[in-house]
């Protein structure tokens, strides 16, 4: 009686698996970030690499020291920490001191993820927590944008990267690369009312954070990721759609005062945030209806902050606020398992 029938295979659902694991997913996104990193290096020189490496080092070291795994550094192998570090590095300005990038990575992983219990438990996107901390701690350094370069300046390193820990960057020499500061397209629009051409924005030939300037690369990578179903396509589509509709309405009221929808869509961190930040599977809703609501909320908040807020850019705060709302969204967007009509909670 103890012998099992070899023809009868007992197994419980689910039977269909996609074979996707957390490390696979993270590596997919990391591969999709390579073109963005290359664009950042093209426009901002070796500084881009240095800032990204510093942020990743801060994130990885924190995970290694405080990570949940018994085996030292075991939780590093799922790749999520590396991804957090790279994402954080890509949304920092090129001239930021390396110690600040490192600190941002450490705070993002430490306070954004590990205090909640590690990957999968966090409420907020860790990379954005790191950036929000840096924004609150060093408001000047994180909004000092240096002029973008071209391929000829590939090897340039900005001296302000090498400020000693806890110290300000030394005042730049008159002919140094970081002596020329520049404004982002959104800052130009908001404070001086100068619009930037769409072709400039698409190519990325503007000042800004490392990874956010080159719109066309982000769009292509985003489409590839969406086709591979690495993330839910509904989230970026609803964010961008909401921003397009809402900013068109505002723009039609006063075409000189408010930025055009094209400028809104292609400038600042909107595309980068919509594709890489808002789609974080941990901090965004998983139900289809929830994803639409989530994106709608982010889009509305982005336009509100950009046009009527004090800051020229608001993608970070919009995503963080909607991260906080995610559990509530999941509750109201719960699909009903069987039958029709309203679900009874």
């Amino acid at each position: 009686m103890t012998r099992r029938d070899p023809r009868l295979l007992l197994q419980s659902a689910p039977f269909l698996r996609r074979g996707i694991t957390t490390p696979r997913l993270m590596v997919d996104v990391l591969i999709a970030l390579v073109p963005v990193v290359l664009a950042a290096v093209y426009f901002f020189g070796l500084s881009a690499i240095l800032v990204i490496v510093a942020a990743t080092a801060g994130a990885a070291l924190t995970e290694w020291v405080f990570g949940p795994d018994r085996r030292r550094g075991g939780s590093l192998t799922d790749g999520s920490t590396i991804l957090t570090g790279v994402l954080l590095g890509l949304c920092l300005p090129p001239g930021i001191a390396l110690w600040m990038a490192f600190l941002g990575g450490a705070v993002g992983v430490g306070l954004g993820k590990l205090v909640f219990g590690g990957l999968g438990q966090n409420i907020f996107n860790p990379a954005l927590v790191g950036r929000a901390f840096l924004q609150a701690a060093f408001p000047t350094a994180i909004t000092t944008w240096t002029q973008q370069g071209a391929i000829t300046e590939l090897l340039t390193i900005r001296p302000s990267n090498f400020a000693l820990p806890f110290m300000q960057a030394p005042a730049p020499a008159a002919d140094a690369v970081d002596a020329i500061s520049a404004a982002t397209p959104l800052g130009l629009m908001k404070f001086q009312n100068i619009p930037t051409g769409v072709e400039q924005l698409l190519l990325g030939n503007t000042a800004g954070s490392l990874g956010e300037t080159c719109a066309i690369v982000i769009i292509i990578c985003g489409v590839i990721l969406a086709i591979r179903r690495t993330f839910d396509w509904r989230i970026p589509v609803s964010i961008l759609g909401t921003v397009a509709v809402f900013s068109t309405i505002v723009w039609l009221f006063d075409r000189t005062e408010y930025p055009s929808p094209w400028l809104m869509l292609c400038s600042g961190g909107l595309l980068f945030g919509a594709v890489y930040m808002a789609t974080d599977p941990v901090t965004s809703p998983i139900t289809p209806r929830g994803a639409w609501i989530f994106g709608l909320g982010i889009g509305l908040l982005v336009v509100l902050i950009r046009i009527w807020g004090g800051l020229p850019e608001g993608v970070m705060y919009a995503i963080l606020l909607m991260n906080a709302a995610t559990p509530l969204i999941e509750r109201i967007a719960q699909p009903r398992a069987f039958g029709r009509g309203r679900a009874v909670a």
Partner: peptide, 13 residues
């Protein structure tokens, strides 16, 4: 830390 300290503004808020 001397004159060139970069203050963490958030800490006094």
């Amino acid at each position: 830390f001397g004159e060139h300290f970069e203050p963490w503004v958030i800490m006094v808020l």
